[in-house]
């Protein structure tokens, strides 16, 4: 049964503070940014909320700025703005690359980085990038702001530490040292959901994150330690096997995901070798 949209409520805040007050005083409310996931749930009648908070007009949350050494990306920055941003392309090119592989231009024009993070899908294309960049999720409520390291943001399948009165207002990305690498394996060349997505950085100690192979995006800390300590690829792949829990679903199989994750780990290591310090 399709959800009746005329019965859904949308609150229209005039400012971020107004939005935060609405969240506190008039909740529960589901924040709505580019709405790219909303109508699929409406169509299937699986929407678990009837009251929404419209963030789309909160222009200050679209900014992408450099603050000291930290890249700050507003939660409402769209994929298109990430692709176009010189700052993003210079400091975290794999984020622009991930954004380019999200949907077609129509989705890139509407989908936001904050939305990708909040939606908490294990297949979110930008999430492995944010994981290896060791981004900080900036959460704000009426009376406080807190910064949560990306590694601590997800607590389980589609679960995050965000409280109902908080909004994700942006991501802070410290300088990333080393060579960046990204690869999305989707069901086709464009407009596809990831079957495996990997982001990695070859610096003094390697960082590797994978999507679509576990209930949340994951950092491969065991693999990173092993490779950092000079272990061979067989050892690294063996550890990767222990770190991931891929499943069979409509789009792929656990076996395939396991195999491809291992191959891409090797590809990353081979392609970034010789150039690191």
């Amino acid at each position: 049964m399709r959800t009746a949209v005329s019965r859904l409520e949308l609150l229209q805040p005039r400012s971020l503070q107004h939005a935060l007050r609405m969240l506190r005083d008039e909740g529960p409310l589901t924040p709505l940014a580019g709405a790219t996931d909303l109508y699929v749930a409406v169509n299937f009648g699986t929407l678990d909320s009837t009251r929404f908070l419209n963030l789309w007009g909160l222009e200050p949350l679209r900014r992408i700025t450099l603050c000291g050494d930290t890249l700050r990306i507003g939660a409402l920055a769209t994929y298109t703005s990430l692709i176009r941003s010189r700052l993003v392309r210079q400091r975290l090119p794999i984020l622009a690359r991930a954004a380019l592989e999200v949907g077609g231009v129509q989705i890139q024009n509407r989908g936001t980085l904050g939305g990708n993070v909040a939606n908490a899908s294990p297949a979110g294309d930008t999430l492995p990038v944010l994981a290896v960049a060791e981004a900080v999720v900036v959460l704000r409520s009426v009376d406080r702001e807190r910064r949560v390291p990306f590694a601590e943001f997800y607590t389980g399948y589609r679960q995050t530490v965000r409280r109902p009165d908080e909004l994700i207002v942006g991501l802070e990305i410290p300088p990333v040292e080393g060579r960046q690498w990204f690869r999305k394996v989707g069901t086709r060349a464009a407009q596809a959901i990831s079957k495996v997505v990997i982001a990695a950085v070859r610096g003094s100690s390697p960082r590797i994150a994978l999507g679509s192979v576990a209930p949340t995006v994951i950092r491969l800390s065991q693999v990173e330690h092993a490779l950092g300590a000079g272990a061979g690829m067989d050892e690294a792949v063996h550890r990767l096997d222990q770190d991931i829990q891929p499943i069979d679903d409509l789009r792929s199989t656990a076996d395939y995901r396991r195999d491809v994750a291992g191959n891409l780990l090797q590809r990353f290591w081979a392609e970034t070798g010789g150039l690191s310090s």
Binding site: V40, G104, R188, A189, A190, A192, I193, L250, R251
Partner: peptide
């Protein structure tokens, strides 16, 4: 159409 995939321009 998200899960039954037909060729796009890039395919």
């Amino acid at each position: 159409l998200t899960n039954y995939i037909i060729p796009t321009t890039l395919d």
